[in-house]
């Protein structure tokens, strides 16, 4: 039987699965390039690596149109409030990839100027290692995130509580108020 003989094509599925499938296939990243990693992020979007295979080639300049913030590079104390503001402007559902060791832990710059891990300011879903991560590493992080979206829950808002790796009893975690922003002068 040829396809044109079919009168009605239809798929059935649970609405949850469909929503997750659709979300996963069109995650639009916000351009949040900070340092070295931003160059690799641009390379990932360009010819050789071609992020558009995953429905992600549209880097949105306005945070309100973006679903994913790729924090690409080191976050300074001066940048931290700006980063938080951009994150707050993004619509739910939203995800964060911390790209590179500087964004994830401060990296080799353990000093007064750099926020030691962007997870002190915004909740992070996937950490991409490397200094800078090659485009392949970034793509792996993105695919990991896709898998998280596919297997996650759709109705659950981002918890204002603890990120998973800290465990649920950690009382020090208050991401709604940016804790590390303007830490003040180290002594």
């Amino acid at each position: 039987m040829a396809l044109e003989d079919l009168q009605h094509n239809f798929l059935t599925g649970r609405i949850e699965d469909l929503v997750k499938w659709a979300r996963r296939a069109s995650v639009w990243p916000a351009t949040f390039g900070l340092a070295c990693c931003a160059i690799e992020m641009m390379a990932a979007g360009a010819a050789d690596y071609d992020l558009s295979r995953y429905g992600m080639e549209v880097f949105r300049n306005s945070p309100r149109q973006a679903d994913l913030m790729i924090v690409a590079g080191r976050v300074s104390q001066k940048m931290a409030p700006v980063l938080r503001q951009v994150y707050d402007q993004m619509m739910e559902p939203k995800w964060v990839i911390s790209m590179g060791v500087c964004a994830s832990t401060g990296g080799m710059f353990n000093n007064y100027a750099i926020v030691q891990g962007v997870d002190q300011i915004v909740p992070v879903d996937v950490y991409a290692p490397g200094c800078p991560p090659s485009p392949e590493t970034l793509m792996h992080a993105i695919l990991t995130l896709h898998e998280q979206i596919r297997t996650g829950e759709i109705m659950k808002r981002r918890e204002s509580g603890t990120p998973t790796h800290l465990g649920h009893d950690n009382g020090n975690w208050t991401p709604e108020v940016p804790v590390s922003v303007r830490l003040g002068t180290p002594k």
Partner: peptide, 18 residues
């Protein structure tokens, strides 16, 4: 540095902030 920062970071008596 941010406008409301205290101290001058490259002075030798200013900690690294590690």
């Amino acid at each position: 540095m941010p406008e409301d920062w205290e101290g001058h970071p490259l002075r030798k008596d200013y900690g690294v902030g590690r």
